[in-house]
Each structure stands twice: as structure tokens, then as C-alpha cells.
Design a protein around this nucleic acid. Structure first.
Lengths: 338, 338
DNA sequence: CCTGGCACTCAACGGTCACGAGTGCCAGAA
DNA sequence: TTCTGGCACTCGTGACCGTTGAGTGCCAGG
């Protein structure tokens, strides 16, 4: 087991390295942190930490840098979550309060998070399957053409065109709309399939085709949209990564463009509490030199979606975690109000 | 005026430089392009082209590279638009055909364009002001709370929450919905303000407040959404820019994140025909070393929005222009069908 | 178990030098 | 006139090399 002081040394190394972006040596450490021991002692501790795999040397005769394992220990045991300052909190609230619709909320959140953490921000749209139905609308566009509009309690709206097998009267449509809504409003999307299962049977023969088609489209929409949407921002912050750009930044940008990858990334995060994935802990190869800090957010107790940031493993974990958590809370509040 | 051969030399320089990304010298030129003259002659021509400002030397004893002015001449006089190959056309169609809604169309388009040109793609959502109204829906959510949903002929949907000054009955709402739709369906959004101007007067005193509020929100939505939305993709392609990364890529990423900047950029493009802005022709400073190729697209003759790509001034103009034009056409078709 | 001392390693920096691609200019040929 | 070959010159690039200094590992003694 590592002694108290060695942990202290690790903490100091992480902090210095995050600050300076340069390998940190024993002498510099004793000067900047009152460890109460000489550089030689620190060197011994460092050797031990290196043996255990918490730190590494880029090359002989250079200082040490933390490994993924080192950051992991730092995050788990050595660092807390740094709360935001009052002005910061106020700024968040002001910035988020002006949003007019869901797109706007998500857009503002992503910009805010990117600015606050100076990293790449990712915000997932509230999931359909975890939301409840606020309203289902059916609009006749032509004789046999209907637009289906789904509205969630989180303000999300989805629409689909439905081509019916036969012309539908306004009355039948109104009837379907009414019955459909009476069954599903207030229910979770995940439960919708069950709830509408026997609906066609209660209609006249002539309208049954239409009802079936509409319901099919509705269910299809639910399935398609389970692959969620998301928004990213702050990619310009990637340029602060390191000096060895092209190789580092390229795969990250590529990964960020693949929504599938990002969604999987967020999906892997725990539903409650904050999740931090460091370097190689990320399954996707392009993100092996980045860390992901993610957390769920929602209007109530339950998370309806996730948000987070992607940055270099060498990031300010306490600060980033603080910002992510705070933003998630405020977004939850905003959603609850609307 | 420049002689025929000198123009030919300029064309050769642009082509070679675009291909190799390295300053091109007189000897290499004569070897790769059958100009029928010796390197010495080409040198004289180059000196002339340099005097006129079409090409420049990064430093003495290096080859020449085209200036913005040189590219401009190339695009205007020396290069055509390269049509896509049949497989490419087919790929576009296949890729775009599977789209389920407007978001999907735009998303697919942006990915397609990025992939085709290997550059950053920007696609603007169909403008509200230039679209026509397909339907206006009013959904009662609570006694004094209504959701306003706007649907355009291009499939775009906008929704807003409206808090009414007093409770509204279902009947009044249905009445308003009917009258509103009878006035505006099929009309252009730009004309809506006029069309609904006198609507409140025709309602009972008790509902007038609600009507006014709803209309106010409607008009507000139109104004807000005049600042259009857009989607970008292919930013990973920025890493192919040059070897002097950080300085080049940074401002571009920043500019791309500012939707305002991009919208202005696209807004400056001509409504019909293709617009190419080269290097310093772009007002925004961060884009001084990039070129923008943009074109309008729409379901009919008229453009409802624009799309384009952003890439290094050193880009394959004929190919890029060909891809942009082709994609715009297909997107137009898709929109017309839906 | 900590400390000071010491020899060793190695990336980074800067200077020198040869190479070669590319230029401008000029005198002579077409 | 216009093109061509020849020639001297420029200057960025890359190889080579010695110096410097931060940092290490190890060891003997407190």
C-alpha cells in the first residue's frame, strides 16, 4: 500500500502537470509544494509510484507525468469536486434562463459548458423513451396524407409524414386523435406500444387500415429516435490540446463527428452520479488520450439524458466535474419549469 | 493583358500546387505540363504573373504559389465545374433517399458533402421567411397554456409555449385555429404578419387577449427564426489543412462555431448560381486563409436556403464546385417530394 | 527512513556546413 | 521580338556536433 506521503506526491504531480503541461521533476515539486522532505526522498517516492504504474517518464532524464492509472487514483481518492463560484453560478442561470425552446436550451447548454470548462461539450437531447407523452397530434394535409406530431413533457417535438392506404375523413381523424391521446398522454414513451396495441380493433372496418398505418409510424418513430440526438460544441478548444496536434486532434474530431460513438460514450456513463472515463478506459480508440466526464440530467429525480465534456486526460478534474455537475442541475431545473 | 500561355502557366501552377501542396518551380512545371517551352521562358512568365499579383514566392529561391487573386482568375476564367461521375451521383441519391424527416435530410446532406469534398460542410435549414405555411396548430396544455406549432412546406417544425392572460375554452381555441389556418395556409411566412393583423377584432371581447397573445408569439417566432439554424460537419477534415496547424485551424474552428458568422457568410452568397469566396474576400478574419463555395437550394425555382463548404484556399475548385452543385440539386428534389 | 552528494543520461539548443531547388539576368539563336 | 541555354546567386533544409542543464538512480552516512 502507498504511504500517505506518496499519495501526496502523486497529487502534487497531477496538479503541477495539469498546470504546466510539462513533466515535473523532484526538485520543482519540493519547491512548489511544502512536502517537508528533500528532493532525494521525493525521488524515491516517485520511483515507487512508477513501479506501481501511477506515473511514467516520457524518456530517461525527464520528469514524470501521471498515467491513466495515476489520474484514476487522483480522481477516486485524492480530489474532490470543486464547487463553482457564486458569479459562475449566476452566469449559468442568466445564460440558461433566456432559452425559448428545447433546441435553444440544448444549444445554450452546450455553449455554456464549453466555455466554462474550456473543453469540448456534449449534450444529449432528452430521450424519448424516458420522457412522457404530452400530446399526439394528427394533421390532415391531403385526403390520404397525415402528419403525425409527437410532443414530450421535456418539450421535444418529432414529426412524421404518414401516407394512409385510403382517404380519411376529418371526423375519423379527430376520433383517432382523441382516443389516442386519452390512452397515452402522461404515460412514458416506453409504454406506448402496449397501450395502443388493441386500438385498431375498436375502429370501423373502413378506417382500420389508416389507424394501423398511423400507429405503425408512431411506433417506428419511437424506435428510430431511441438512437438519440445530441449537440456538441467547443471543438475549437481542442487546439489547446498539445503541441503535437495533427495526430492527437484528428481522431478526436473524427470520433466527435460520429454521433453513434458519442452516444455510446454517454450511454456507458452511470445513470446517476458522475462518471469519469480516463484515457484508455474509453472503448473508442480515437479517444484513448482523452477523458470524458459525464452526468445524467433530468427534470425530476430521474435522468432523461446525459451531458458531459471531452478533454485531454491532462485536465483539471475537480473544476471540470464541478462545472458539469452544476450545469446539469440548472438544465434540469429549466426543463422542469417548461 | 496576359498572353494565352501565361494563363496556361497560371493554370498549371494552381493545379500542381493544389495537388502537391508545395511551391512549384519552373522546371517541375515544364516537366509535368507540356507547355512546349523551356523552363527559362516559364520563369519569365512567372515573373510577369508575380508582377501582376497572381502568384507569389514564400521566400526567395522557392517556387511560386498562387495568391488569392490568382485563384480568383483561375476560378473565373480558367476552370470549369467538374461534373460528378455517375457512381458518385448514384451514391448521393441513395444516401439522401433514406431520410425520414427534415433533420435527417440536413444531417445526411452535411455528412455527404463533407465526405464528397473532404472538407467542412455547412448546410442551412430551409428558411422560414421564404417557406410557405403548411399548418398552424394550437394545443391546449393547461387552462391558460397553449402550445403553438408551426409547420412549413419544407417540413420544418417550430414550437412555442404560450401563456395566455386568461383561461381559454377548447371551442375558442378551435375557432382561432380554424380562422388562423384559413388565412395563412399556403402563404409565405413573410406575408403572415399582414394577413393576421386584423384577426383579434373578429373575436369576442373575452378571447381577444388570448388571440393577441398567441399572434404575438407567432410573429415573434418568425422574427427569431429569421436568424436561421444550420448544421456543420466534416471538421475532422480541417486536419488535412497544412502542417502549421494550431495557427491555421484554430480561428477556423472558432469561426465555424459562431453560427452568426456562418450565416452571414452564406447570406453573402448570391441567391442563384454558385458563389466562391476566396481567402481575404471573406469578411471574417478567421477565414482569411479559407475559401467558401456556396449555393442556394430549394424545392422549386427559388432558393429556400443555402449550403456550401469551407476549405483551404488551396482546394480543388472544379471538383468542389461540382459536388456542391450536385448535392444542392438532389436536396432540392428531396424537399420537393416530401 | 531521510538526506546530501555524485556520476550519468539525454532532450533541447545553437552553430556550422554542404546540398540543391529555384531564381534573375544576359547574350545569342530563331 | 521572343525563346533558349548558361551562369552566378539565394536561401531553406537537413545532417552533424558539441554544450548545457534538468532530472535521475544509487549510495554512504546521519
Amino acid at each position: 500500500m502507498l504511504s500517505e506521503r506518496r499519495l501526496e506526491v502523486l497529487r502534487a504531480i497531477v496538479q503541477d502537470y495539469v498546470g504546466t503541461e510539462e513533466p515535473v521533476g523532484s526538485k520543482a515539486l519540493t519547491e512548489r509544494h511544502r512536502l517537508g522532505v528533500s528532493p532525494a526522498t521525493v525521488r524515491n517516492d516517485m520511483a515507487a509510484l512508477e513501479d506501481e504504474g501511477f506515473i511514467a517518464q516520457p524518456h530517461t532524464s525527464a520528469g514524470r507525468i501521471p498515467t491513466d492509472k495515476g489520474y484514476r487514483l487522483f480522481v477516486d481518492k485524492l480530489a474532490g469536486v470543486k464547487p463553482l463560484s457564486t458569479p459562475e453560478r449566476r452566469a449559468i442561470q442568466n445564460f440558461l434562463d433566456g432559452a425559448v425552446d428545447l433546441d435553444d436550451v440544448v444549444g445554450r447548454t452546450v455553449r455554456l459548458l464549453a466555455q466554462l470548462t474550456r473543453q469540448v461539450a456534449v449534450v444529449q437531447y432528452p430521450s424519448l423513451t424516458r420522457s412522457t407523452v404530452r400530446h399526439v397530434e394528427l394533421l390532415p394535409l391531403a385526403a390520404a396524407r397525415v402528419m403525425l406530431v409527437l410532443i414530450t413533457d421535456t418539450g421535444r417535438v418529432e414529426q412524421r409524414m404518414v401516407d394512409c392506404p385510403s382517404p380519411v375523413s376529418e371526423e375519423s381523424l379527430a376520433d383517432l386523435r382523441a382516443r389516442l391521446n386519452s390512452r397515452v398522454v402522461g404515460r412514458r414513451f416506453a409504454d406506448v406500444p402496449q397501450l395502443v396495441q388493441d386500438l385498431p380493433e375498436s375502429f370501423e372496418q373502413e378506417d382500420r387500415g389508416t389507424v394501423t398505418t398511423v400507429l405503425a409510424t408512431l411506433l417506428e418513430t419511437l424506435v428510430e429516435e431511441t438512437e438519440e440526438r445530441l449537440m456538441i460544441g467547443g471543438t475549437a478548444n481542442l487546439t489547446r490540446f498539445g503541441h503535437d496536434f495533427p495526430l492527437t486532434i484528428r481522431p478526436v474530431l473524427e470520433a466527435l463527428e460520429e454521433q453513434v460513438v458519442l452516444l455510446k460514450l454517454l450511454g456507458e456513463a452511470k445513470d446517476s452520479g458522475m462518471t469519469v472515463r480516463i484515457g484508455h478506459e474509453n472503448a473508442h480508440e480515437g479517444l484513448n488520450s482523452t477523458s470524458v466526464v459525464a452526468v445524467g440530467y433530468g427534470s425530476g429525480d430521474e435522468a432523461v439524458a446525459k451531458l458531459g465534456v471531452v478533454g485531454p486526460t491532462r485536465m483539471d478534474y475537480p473544476g471540470t466535474m464541478g462545472a458539469v455537475r452544476a450545469v446539469a442541475r440548472y438544465v434540469g431545473q429549466i426543463l422542469a419549469e417548461s
